[in-house]
């Protein structure tokens, strides 16, 4: 049982990059379908479409970031000795990873849908690019807040 803590912590780190990554993949996929549709009509919109498609991609990066942060905390990066983690501390790290894992997952999908709608918007009104970027960014706010929660929580966890 001596590795239970480490396993729990790793489970959390895995969920952070896993769920947020899935969310971003789905979100970018949704936006990409819309972008491809618009570009069949007007290939010149590639630049704008690409930016809008990329917006739901940040959640995956936030998840990865938390995963690395946790791994770093556990001493699993850089080849040194792994930190000794009790099951209690392992659970704490698992809990810290939850905000970014779940909010990242869901917000990326919804951000993808909003991006897809924004892409349709610039198909008709290219001058509305500013508004088109802001709408998906409204969704991302919650992923940013979740990232912040996870970072602050991870920083707060004390490993003896």
């Amino acid at each position: 049982m001596e590795y239970l803590g480490l396993t729990l912590a790793l489970f959390g780190a895995a969920l952070a990059s896993l769920l947020a990554g899935i969310g971003s993949a789905v979100g970018i996929g949704i936006a990409g379908e819309s972008a491809a549709g618009v570009m069949t009509e007007d290939p010149d919109k590639f630049g704008s479409c690409l930016i809008l498609q990329a917006l739901p991609g940040t959640q995956g990066i936030y998840g990865l970031l938390i995963m690395f942060f946790a791994l770093n905390k556990l001493g699993l990066l850089g080849g040194g000795e792994a930190a000794l983690v009790t099951w209690n501390q392992g659970l704490q790290i698992l809990a810290s990873c939850m905000p970014v894992a779940f909010v990242g997952w869901y917000s990326a999908i919804w951000q993808g849908k909003t991006s897809a709608a924004s892409i349709q918007m610039i198909a008709k009104k290219p001058e509305a690019m500013g508004k088109a970027i802001i709408l998906p960014a409204m969704v991302e706010t919650y992923a940013v807040l979740a990232l912040l929660s996870s970072i602050l929580m991870l920083m707060g966890v004390q490993l003896g």
Partner: peptide, 30 residues
């Protein structure tokens, strides 16, 4: 007001991504 906490979060984001890249680079040099 709380919405401005994104300033911290995004700043963190760039710092931590940078840190991770350096860490991976350092590992690769081995």
């Amino acid at each position: 007001i709380l919405s401005y906490s994104r300033l911290l979060a995004l700043g963190f984001g760039s710092a931590v991504i940078g840190m991770i890249i350096n860490l991976l680079g350092g590992m690769a040099s081995g």
